[in-house]
Amino acid sequence: MNDDIPVQTSSSGLTDPVAFTLFMRNYQDMVFTTAVRLTGDAPTAEDIAQEVFMKAHAHFGMLQASPAAGGWLKTVTTNLALNHLTRYRNRWRLFSELRRADSDGGDSPPEAEFAAPEELFSGLDAAERRECVGRALAQLPTAQRVPLVLYHFEELSCDEIAGQLGVSLAKVKTDIYRARAALAKLLRRGGPGRETFPG
């Protein structure tokens, strides 16, 4: 957390600016991480995080002492990120998804190839390994990354994801499977070990 910056004490329209700044410092990494994992774009995630804390400020009286504040922030972040992605998708779907549909392949899940973790990341230290995974996650197409993040990080069920995204359960399952396979493939590029797991 940003402990190197002094806590702001100016009025800034806050009832208790110090308390709110401390609250923000406690949660900003979690909020930003959730947003960046969903959107795959740091500047967009920062905009979303700002909006989340603006909303949090409006409900600060309720959130300040609540043990559920983290959950509230996570839910709001997820919803705002999904709203952003939906707006963006609707705006460009007509043109940008025409081309993707051509190269998307069939409905059957692809063959998954991946190496065992210990072989895949051999020669990499923990920090390098995490960076490699983070980079690979950001490279996934939005349609695959979003359900994958909601499933593995937010721990939503496939039914809940289908409800959130307004798509069928079958599509969610296929997209998650494709995302895992694509992620494994991206990670494999850097690793020597390989296993093949036909779908």
Binding site: Q28, M54, V133
Partner: peptide, 20 residues
């Protein structure tokens, strides 16, 4: 295994400025 990503330093300032 992925850790949380550190929020940009600018975020806090941006939020407080927007509130102000």
């Amino acid at each position: 295994d992925l850790p949380l990503r550190r929020a940009p330093h600018t975020l806090e300032r941006r939020v407080l400025a927007a509130l102000e």
